[in-house]
């Protein structure tokens, strides 16, 4: 029980400093999990990073992996809940204030002024991903076909992704 409380506390702390998100997290998690508490070896840590990236959840799913090592399924649950607790609570607060104040003209105007930047960031994410993973002409053909299907039909992205995976194996 004490161990679980300790685990909860550590992951809560990680959750609180993980604003800004993404890859700043890796060196931090490494220091805590490998150097400080020795929950994982270096190899286990790197394999865990690879595993976390297979799944849809954010990279912090590494918390599940480390929690599992440190305390089985209960440890995995504790790690996952507590690493996400701070950002979820904060997001609920923001959502609440948003609901209250977003109809004020000055707030609304400021937030709407942000939206073109959001569009730029979404497009930028596509560009960054494309730079590393669009290599062969076949990749570009799948990209074009995928774009056409997703833009002009209502076929579920899940089916399109699975279809492309199948095609990728055949090509």
């Amino acid at each position: 029980m004490l161990k679980m409380a300790h685990l909860a506390w550590i992951f809560l702390k990680i959750g609180m400093i993980f604003f800004g998100g993404g890859y700043v997290l890796i060196p931090l998690l490494h220091r805590i999990m490998v150097d400080e508490y020795r929950w994982l070896t270096l190899k286990e840590f790197l394999d865990g990073v690879a595993l976390s990236q297979l799944t849809p959840g954010p990279l912090a799913m590494l918390a599940t992996f480390t929690g599992f090592k440190a305390g089985g399924l209960a440890g995995a649950l504790v790690g996952t809940v507590f690493i996400y607790l701070p950002c979820t609570v904060l997001m609920l607060f923001i959502s609440r204030y948003y609901a209250k104040f977003s109809s004020m003209e000055i707030i609304r105007g400021t937030l709407d002024g942000l939206l073109p930047a959001v569009v730029g960031l979404v497009a930028g994410a596509a560009y960054n991903l494309g730079k590393t993973s669009l290599v062969t002409p076949a990749d570009f053909m799948i990209l074009a076909a995928g774009f056409a299907v997703l833009q002009f039909t209502r076929i579920s992205p899940m089916l399109v992704i699975l279809g492309a995976g199948g095609m990728g194996m055949l090509l």
Binding site: L129, S133, D139, F140, I142, L143, I161, A164, G165, G168
Partner: peptide, 9 residues
């Protein structure tokens, strides 16, 4: 292999 479609999405 599914990356191009994810990018398209």
């Amino acid at each position: 292999g599914t990356n191009p479609v994810i990018i398209a999405l």
